[in-house]
Design a protein around this nucleic acid. Sequence first.
DNA 1: CTTGGGACCTGGCTGC
DNA 2: TGCAGCCAGGTCCCAA
Length: 272
Amino acid sequence: MPELPEVETIKNELSPHIIGRRFTGIAICDAKPIRQPSVEEFCRKLVGQKINSLKRRGKYLIFHLSNGEALIMHLRMSGALLLNPEQPDSYARVIFYFDNNDQLVFTDRRRLGALWLVENKQAIIGKLGPEPLVPEFTINTLAERLHKHKAPIKAVLLDQGTIAGIGNMYADEALFKARIHPLRKANSLSPQEIQDLYQAIRHVLCSAIDNKGASIDTYKRPEGEIGTAHFNFSVAHRGGEPCPVCGTPLQRLAIRNRGSYYCPNCQEARQT
DNA sequence: CTTGGGACCTGGCTGC
DNA sequence: TGCAGCCAGGTCCCAA
């Protein structure tokens, strides 16, 4: 499941191969991911464009093109971008061809991923909250945003309009590291807890980027390698296993229809 | 406005 | 063996 660290890794590893390249063709194997504009217009406008830069915002990848437009991608649950894959892929949805004969395959087993080609990228990414890893994102930024919500802290961390880029895995990991129960109301956290959570978010995300993302499910890096961040996970997807700190069996709880894994001993409920 | 529930989507896994 | 049902979860949509 590509979250911020996975998308950041894809951006970093893809950039040296595609910056300055020109699209020479597109093969649409499945039109469903193409949201905007029509498939015909998407292909017509993209071919011939050069890629000036590749950026990440939240979980979105943004290709800035020579005509001023932007190709925006969201991988959702099972999407991946593979550079010159050796094996044919039955889940390939869109194949991009470049002027150096490289191919970039957008593959997506569960067909939830999305592609846009737009003049105004703000229409797609304009409502995202702040990036958690930039210097401007301070403890006060986090505190101000959490104070506005009385929903469970886990749900608020997943809200991309509050903070961009955190998904289910890293929300669980950050809450465990900060020793905060996932059902605590966001506006009930003490200043100390907010500071702990702030540091936990940054540590968990930076560590995952250092490990090139987490390959728990279908995530692969552009050249086919897996990431290794999941080997460091403490609680995510580990229901029933012992807590790495105290040995208590980790529990699973559904919050907003999302599996939340936590240690009932280390992450005390207190008032929720 | 916020909150919470369901839908979308497919495949792996479990249990009867 | 077959099959129903759960689980995985990022985001959108709708109702309260």
